[in-house]
Design a protein around this nucleic acid. Structure first.
Length: 123
RNA sequence: GGAGUUGGCUAGACAGUCGCUGUAUUUUUUCAAAUACGGAGGAAAGUCCGGGCUCCAAAGGGUAGAGUGCCAGGUAACCCCUGGGAGGUGCAAGCCUAUGGAAAGUGCCACAGAAAAUAUACCGCCGUAUAGGAAACUAUAAGGUAAGGGUGAAAAGGUGCGGUAAGAGCGCACCGCGUAACUGGUAACAGUUGCGGCACGGAAAACCCCACUCGGAGCAAGACCAAAUAGGGAUCCACGUAAACGCAAGUUUACCGAUGCGCGACCCGCGCAGGAUCCGGGUAGGUUGCUUGAGGUGUACGGUGACGUGCAUCCCAGAUGAAUGAUUGUCCACGACAAAACCCGGCUUAUCGGCCGACUUCCUUU
């Protein structure tokens, strides 16, 4: 079908959760996967692509600069792995411990999480 | 050159790849896509002041409350800035100061100390009287003192000389203080001369007095569009009756809610309150407010300066689950503090460094 089209790694708005209800729905009925400094809430959607929401609370990470940094890391990792995931709504929540890790650690952990996620939800 | 003071500027650079966001242009029925050009800070921070803007309120004045507090100027405005004064501090350049009034009134001044403001003077000092004693002196009494001691953050002007029984602004000189005149200055204030013998301790960051300023709330302000659900209003339909027209089917008009529907053959009774359209309010959501502005840059002129005026030129973030990132390579001084959320002017706080200017002082040289 679309195999001839070159895969795009863009991250348009359709691949993001943009409304409070979507977040609430994912939290309510999603499955939770925790690992160290972050938690993923995963819920199947009816679309052919995944959607991501990122939560880094002001309580967990006080400085705005650090907060933005973490969100960008998450989005970047999601962007590069979007084609392997499938139709799921995902909310990633960062904990306060995330401050103890550096950029490359976080990046590697995230990449591993996507792989784990795929293997666990696909029977 | 060393040490220091002070005012500015800057905040890794370049290239490739993959992304985000705004605007413009082109393509496309649309969704979108392509190209080009923009895309965090000096503090964007704290939210401590001042203003714009928006809505609400409002004749004016007063009270209450809050704020400011040497003088002059700057500014849209200010708890800001500039210049000046006064006090403190440093060898100096400089730096610091909630810097009006204590003679309008009320109150306060812990501890210590006799005493903290009306000096009733603790230890003392001094002569006198009486008693004792040969005397030195001792005790007592009524007095004179505030020099000395001690306490305290602070003790009722300070130092010196005279004076005295001992002392004391008691007298004198200088200093301080108060006061009057004159001079300089827009003024704060300063200086000079005369007078007063001292009368006026601190604290206004106790209340207070005086002068000046202040309406309230904020972009989650405000404006527009507006689904679903519930509810409000209007009209019509449905149901009933009457009249008119018509052979009839039916149509039109008027009236009623005492109605209609379900259970039921009907009454009573019980339960329920239909459908459509429109209107207004309004939630989720969306659009707007939203970036051309007390704007930036350059230059000329005025001003000691803050700043002002003229001319030329530029458009320089606008997101909204929230954009400026990731990665690779090269180089170096190896990169701090930290990210817009309506917009400006300040203040305060954080900050690895780098660059430039001015000044002070010490050393060396001449």
């Amino acid at each position: 079908m679309l195999s001839s089209v070159k895969l795009s790694f863009a991250l348009p708005k359709q691949l993001k959760l943009t409304h409070a209800e979507q977040f609430a729905a994912t939290f309510r009925s999603g499955k939770k996967y925790s690992c160290g400094f972050l938690a993923l809430f995963v819920k199947p959607n009816d679309l052919e692509h995944p959607r991501l929401g990122v939560v880094v609370s002001k309580k967990a990470v006080r400085k705005a600069v650090a907060r933005n940094q973490i969100k960008r890391l998450m989005r970047e990792s999601f962007r590069l792995n979007q084609h392997t995931i499938g139709g799921f709504d995902i909310v990633a929540v960062a904990y306060a411990d995330i401050k103890k890790f550096n950029k490359t650690d976080i990046r590697q952990t995230l990449d591993k999480q996507w792989a784990k996620l795929i293997s666990s939800v696909k029977p």
